[in-house]
Amino acid sequence: MNVTAHYRFPPASAYRLNRCLFAIKSDAAFRSRFRADPRAAAREMGLGEAESAALLDGNRDALVAHGAHPYLVFMADLRLRMEREAMTFEYF
């Protein structure tokens, strides 16, 4: 798979970042901690400064440049917005 692919091999250097995004997406308890104190939650996951800054800014391009998986960025952001903005849905 070449470097222009939409979905690329997640580099080992981005493991902590991807683990943090996965936890925001799929672990409600971690998501609560992240919403309460994003810096502390990022520290808990062992993120570096640049990764933390990209995550706290919600800067997708910077996150992907750090090796974050685009789908994890997308779903982590969606889960946070669903809670923060109390998005309204029509449930079927």
């Binding site: 997640p10 493991y15 991807n18 683990r19 996965f22 997406k25 799929s26 998986h69 789908y71 994890l72 779903m75």
Partner: peptide, 8 residues
């Protein structure tokens, strides 16, 4: 899998 059942 949407990186849900399995992670890295």
């Amino acid at each position: 899998d949407h990186i849900e059942a399995f992670f890295l």
